Simulated assay, not measured.
Amino acid sequence: MSDGDWSFPADLVALRVAFIKAEADTAAVAAEGPASADVLAGQAVDDSAYAVRLHAAWERWRVIAERLLDHPYWAGVPKDRRVDAREALQRLARHGESR
Rank of each mutant, 00 (worst) to 15 (best):
M1G: 13
M1R: 14
S2G: 05
S2E: 12
S2K: 15
D3G: 07
G4R: 12
G4F: 11
G4H: 09
G4V: 13
D5Q: 10
D5G: 15
S7H: 13
S7N: 08
F8K: 05
F8S: 03
P9L: 15
P9C: 13
P9E: 05
A10H: 09
D11G: 14
L12Q: 00
L12D: 06
A14P: 02
L15C: 07
L15R: 07
R16V: 08
R16G: 00
A18N: 10
A18M: 06
I20P: 00
K21F: 11
A22C: 06
A22F: 05
A22I: 05
E23R: 09
E23M: 04
E23G: 08
A24W: 02
A24E: 13
V29C: 11
A30L: 04
A31T: 06
E32A: 07
E32L: 13
G33H: 13
P34A: 15
S36R: 14
S36G: 09
A37F: 11
A37G: 01
D38F: 04
V39I: 15
L40R: 12
L40P: 00
L40D: 10
A41V: 01
A41R: 06
G42R: 08
G42I: 03
G42A: 11
G42K: 02
G42D: 12
Q43E: 13
A44C: 07
A44L: 08
A44E: 11
D46Y: 08
D46R: 15
S48D: 09
S48H: 05
S48T: 09
A51M: 06
V52R: 02
R53H: 08
R53C: 02
R53Q: 08
L54E: 08
H55V: 00
H55M: 05
A56Y: 00
A57Q: 06
A57M: 04
W58P: 00
R60Y: 00
R60D: 06
W61P: 00
R62C: 13
R62W: 14
V63C: 03
V63L: 14
V63M: 12
I64N: 08
I64P: 00
A65I: 00
E66M: 03
L68R: 03
L68I: 08
L69G: 09
L69V: 05
D70H: 06
H71T: 08
H71M: 04
A75M: 01
G76N: 15
V77G: 06
V77I: 12
V77N: 10
P78I: 04
P78V: 12
K79F: 10
K79A: 14
D80F: 11
D80V: 03
R81M: 13
R81Q: 14
R82I: 05
V83D: 14
E87W: 03
E87Y: 03
A88I: 07
L89Y: 04
H95M: 04
G96P: 10
G96D: 11
G96F: 01
S98E: 11
R99Y: 03
